[in-house]
Simulated assay, not measured.
Amino acid sequence: MTLVTAALAAQETAVVPDTIRKWVQLGHLTPAGRRGRANLFRLEDVFAAERATRRTHELRRAES
C-alpha cells in the first residue's frame, strides 16, 4: 500500500492541500498513517473523498 502526503494527494485531485485537510476535518477522508507530524493518505481514499464531495456540491447546485 502506497501512502502519500496531503500535498501529493492535493496535486493528484487538482485541489489545494487545505482542501485535503478540510476533508479530514469533515470526516470525508481518514489518514492511513503518519510520517512525523504529517498525515499520510491512501490515494484510493483520496479519490473516493473527492468523488463524494463533488457529488454533494453537484446536488446542492441542482437544488438552488
Rank of each mutant, 00 (worst) to 15 (best):
G27H: 10
V46P: 06
Q11Y: 07
H57M: 14
V4S: 04
P17Y: 09
R60K: 14
G27Y: 11
A14L: 11
L26I: 06
P31H: 09
L59N: 08
R34Q: 09
A52S: 14
R21N: 09
L8F: 08
A32P: 08
Q11S: 09
T2E: 12
P31A: 13
H57C: 12
A6P: 07
T19L: 03
L59A: 11
W23Y: 15
L8W: 04
W23M: 05
T5C: 10
M1D: 13
A7P: 00
G27P: 10
Q25E: 14
V15S: 10
W23T: 03
R60M: 13
A48L: 12
D45M: 02
R21Y: 07
A32I: 06
A9C: 06
R60S: 15
L3A: 01
I20N: 02
I20E: 01
L29D: 03
A38R: 08
G36F: 01
L40A: 03
I20P: 02
V4Y: 12
N39R: 13
L29K: 01
A6W: 04
T53N: 01
G27D: 06
K22T: 09
A49G: 02
A32Q: 07
G33F: 12
Q11R: 12
R34D: 04
R42L: 15
T30R: 12
V46C: 06
V15A: 07
A48K: 10
A7H: 08
V4P: 04
V15T: 15
G33D: 13
A52M: 11
P17C: 15
T13D: 00
A9G: 10
A6F: 06
L59W: 11
A10H: 02
T30Y: 07
V15N: 07
R55T: 15
E63M: 12
E58Q: 11
V15E: 14
G36T: 05
L3Q: 02
R51F: 11
H28K: 05
